[in-house]
Design a binder for these strands. Structure first.
Length: 422
RNA sequence: GGAGAGGUGGCCGAGUGGCCGAAGGCGGCCGCUUGCUAAGCGGCAGAGGGUUAACAGCCCUCCGAGGGUUCGAAUCCCUCCCUCUCCGCCA
């Protein structure tokens, strides 16, 4: 959520920044400004009346003790009360409209974010690794996995429908190995391992920005009004909602393995084969809660921490900086890490590392007390470290051999207790 | 799921209709005293919002959340949420 005071005091600055994402947001800001003005006018009126009512009521108390008649005063206050109630009703409606509007406005992009409309305009910042030359036509991971008997798409469809896959045997063990490998790496770098709930309340999703705008992307357990998490970012970032941390507590680093559940509404026809886009997938997440002055250094570090996984696995990748049009709702700046898929001849996203600045902190009410005792919002960051299923697919493709077998990357062999699948 | 107890400031805890934004204690901050420390003494200090040049003043709101009764609610009534204890069920 954007700071209403910032919008009020620097409307042009806010409009300029937001229009880099979407020019229509300029009108939304004007709407916000109108509502905010109306809101403050109503507050002034209501409060004046309340002050008067409080004064009169106190007088009644004094008069009573002196044994005087208070009928007239009581009638006067009763009338005041009606006026107050009417204005309060109007005020709460205005407040609600304003709040709902603010909750649907995305974060301001950082000045360094390149302009652009979609992923075509993202800017590559670096590459790592040597793309392997195969002496044969590299197969897609779904063919490799099916043939090895480790990916069962038919069983997944039978059990739960499309975009669900059953992983078996050494494939399942490889997936578990990847999770352990990633967690071990991150915890060795100071991230605290967490096992969070996989079901959360609506307000938790408002905190990180998935609600109210992206409801249709989420699975909802209606009887209990709980949502399945689309990423561990949601419970981890919300760990300190409604709290005031002390400056020495910062920075906080967390990592968690969780399944992620996404309805993938509106992505019909995209990546229909394989395990690139699933309704349920495993992910190891990195979350940082940091001092505002250091959040951009922390973003660089977070990104390299995620990259480290691919380096150790020997998977070629590149890092791109998202343009304004591709930036997520809550993010000010985002780096995507994309791993090489030989069968597709292109890089595919396995991580998205973002600095949300105080956008989520304001929604969650997570603050800290600085040296002078002033309360400030923290900055929050998150990044995949990494998307496990996609990395598994990348391993199948990059480590495939002509005979259909797949080598296990060196770094995973102790975990998998095997050096080849097939 | 059943029965009961409870949710008050950073923490503990008093407060059953006005003089309560809230006693007292602990912790915190600032002084004084004091070889140092500790103890002691005195003082300061809740949060959010409106107005404003202002972290000055004034005003409003907040005692788990939301409604209600009343001229007036931390206090009375209703609903919900959460925590704890016991029982049941259960990985």
């Amino acid at each position: 959520m954007l700071d209403i005071e910032l919008i009020r005091k620097n409307p042009e600055k806010v409009k300029n920044a937001l229009s880099r994402r979407d020019p229509s947001l300029v009108d939304t800001i004007d709407e916000v400004l109108d509502l905010d003005k109306h809101r403050r006018e109503l507050i002034a009126k209501v409060e004046n009346l309340r002050a008067l009512r409080n004064k009169k009521s106190k007088e009644i108390g004094h008069l009573r003790r002196e044994g005087k008649d208070t009928k007239a005063s009581e009638e006067e206050v009763r009338k005041l009360k009606e006026d107050i109630e009417n204005l309060e009703e109007e005020l709460s409606q205005v407040k609600e409209s304003l709040h709902n509007l603010l909750l649907r406005i995305p974060n301001l992009p950082h000045p360094s974010v390149p302009d652009g409309e979609d992923e075509e305009d993202n800017v590559e910042v670096r590459r790592w690794g040597q793309i392997k030359e195969f002496g044969f036509e590299p197969k897609p991971h779904w063919e490799i996995g099916e043939k090895l008997g480790i990916l069962d798409f038919k069983a997944g469809a039978t059990l739960a429908g499309s975009r669900f896959t059953v992983v078996k045997g050494l494939g399942a063990r490889l997936e578990r190995a990847l999770i352990n490998f990633m967690l071990d790496l991150h915890t060795s770098k100071g991230y605290q391992e967490v096992i969070p709930p996989h079901l959360v309340r609506p307000e938790i999703l408002i905190g990180t920005g998935q609600l109210p705008k992206f409801q249709e992307d989420l699975y909802l357990c209606e009887r209990d009004d709980l949502y399945l998490i689309p990423t561990a970012e949601v419970p981890l970032t919300n760990l300190f909602r409604d709290t005031i941390l002390s400056e020495e507590d910062l920075p906080l680093y967390f990592t968690a393995y969780t399944p992620c559940y996404r309805r993938e509404a509106g992505s019909h026809g995209k990546d229909v084969r394989g395990i690139i886009r699933q309704h349920q997938f495993n992910k190891v997440e990195l979350v940082k809660i940091v001092h505002p002055d250091t959040s951009y250094e922390e973003l660089e570090k977070l990104t390299t921490d995620a990259e480290e996984v691919l380096k150790l696995l020997g998977l070629p990748y590149r890092v791109v900086e998202l343009c304004t049009g591709d930036l997520g709702f809550s993010a000010s700046k985002t780096y995507d890490i994309e791993v090489w898929f030989p069968s597709q001849g292109r890089f595919r996203e396995v991580s998205s590392c973002s600095n949300c600045e105080d956008f989520q902190a304001r929604r969650m009410n997570t603050r800290f007390k600085d040296a002078s005792g002033k309360k400030r919002f923290v900055h929050t960051l998150n990044g995949s470290g990494l998307a496990v299923g996609r990395v598994l697919a990348a391993i199948l493709e990059n480590y495939q051999r002509e005979d259909g077998r797949v080598e296990i990357p060196e770094a995973l062999r102790d975990y998998v207790k095997a050096d080849i699948i097939g």
